[in-house]
Design a protein around this nucleic acid. Structure first.
Lengths: 239, 239
DNA sequence: CTGACATTCAATTGAGTTATTGAGTAATGG
DNA sequence: CCATTACTCAATAACTCAATTGAATGTCAG
């Protein structure tokens, strides 16, 4: 065993041990991403912080199960927690985590098309509504020729939305149709490309004779492209 | 159970099943990333395609073990294969996979600093050599005031390198020092921020009295920033 | 067709992961 | 202080994954 004494460069064994540790750190992150449940929780959290109870409800999980998965995400440092009275609020630890989730989604995109027709059918947005892209929407928002609706729960809207959007929560779409402007085109968006709130809203509105298109992105994709995001001042849960 | 008959929108059960399938597709990718060994293989492959035998050797794995992990990566569609005579050559399936690997690395970066001092010690580049950044290097390459050396095996150099770099494989650094220009500053780079070939080379060259700095990026990071990458025409393995 | 080589497959064993259940803990309101 | 709510922890059983071994497959050189 030739052990070099040079302080700055360790032995070959030290090296490969260190290299292994580095890859093991990376693998911690990978492991945390290796569960559909945890990815769903991450996706929800990417739309805004939430309590364990809210996450369990939205992902249809047992409280204990949600808690365990969230602990796992926290152990991988993908999320952080904060106590707020009786609740523990989880949030994404760093913008790089949202970017990571998007990278996974991008890598999965091709295979979804290829080998899961059920999922594809569920997502057929293009077939029903001509999608609008970010740059066209940005231009038309400036021109004032569209009305942009954010079809998500108010809590998510408050934590960040496309500047200029108005919040029409999923349950309120029908009611909102009555007072919707009939002259302008309506653009609906929700959480992102795999979220169907905006499509549902578009179907509902079109059935009432309105002109609607859908933006396939969410507020994170919009923000990641450097476009303006607004957030409503929160008054902390229900304090 | 109210089952809607509308063809375009399925029942609530269909929905949540479809949503689950989507997250399960994402999780396939996550699972593939959940092993230090597979991440090391991906990292090697991001530097260029290789046979199973070459990968097993470079990652110090049994042939069968390397093959199984590579099959797992292939099942997640992160890598593809091609037969070349008796060998099977694996390669990254899509640029989005390299981006995914980089996203994992970025998310892991903070924790490495925080909770693995062994790995940190191994990587202490800044302490020894003033790092150069991409834009400074690009400028000085244009000016011709630096000599850029690519400290990787020739096969990797051939498959893609920073335009203007000359290849000095890890074992040849000492020999190359003799004919290295003494007037210009030397910049060394290798696979990327977690690769130590360039640091080793820099130490060796500095011990011989040369002026050396290190670029912490590899060819993928350089290329991802839209900077020019060159590749040498391959003549296909050993055909 | 045979032997050599690179790779994959199959079967085994041990280790790690998941969902579930029930108990334990921290903050709040009375 | 007690009850309640929100959450976490511990223990279990079912399941999945990893490393290893040896056999099987595909290709090439003769």
């Amino acid at each position: 065993m030739s052990v070099r004494k040079t302080p700055s460069s360790g032995s070959a064994a030290d090296r490969s041990a260190a290299k292994r540790r580095i890859y093991e750190q990376f693998a911690r992150i990978g492991k945390a991403l290796g569960s559909a449940t945890r990815l769903e929780l991450l996706d929800l959290l990417s739309q805004g912080e939430r309590s364990v109870e809210a996450l369990a409800r939205e992902a249809s999980l047992e409280m204990a199960s949600a808690s365990q998965h969230l602990r796992a995400l926290a152990a991988a440092r993908l999320v952080e927690t904060r106590r707020e009275g009786q609740r523990i609020v989880y949030r994404i630890a760093d913008p790089s985590v949202v970017a990571l989730f998007h990278a996974v989604r991008a890598a999965a995109k091709a295979q979804l098309a290829e080998l899961d027709s059920v999922a594809q059918a569920y997502l057929q947005r293009e077939d029903d509504f001509e999608p609008i892209d970010q740059s066209e929407l940005a231009r038309r928002l400036r021109d004032g020729t569209v009305v942009l609706i954010d079809v998500r729960p108010p809590e998510e809207f408050a934590q960040g939305h496309i500047r200029g959007a108005i919040n029409v929560p999923p349950g309120d779409v029908s009611a909102w149709a009555a007072k919707a402007p009939r002259k302008k085109e309506i653009v609906a968006y929700c959480r992102g490309p795999y979220c169907v709130y905006s499509m549902d809203a578009a179907r509902t509105l079109r059935a009432k004779g309105l002109r609607v298109r859908a933006l396939p992105d969410g507020v994170n994709e919009w923000g990641a492209a450097g476009r303006p995001v607004a957030r409503t001042a929160t008054h902390g849960g229900r304090s």
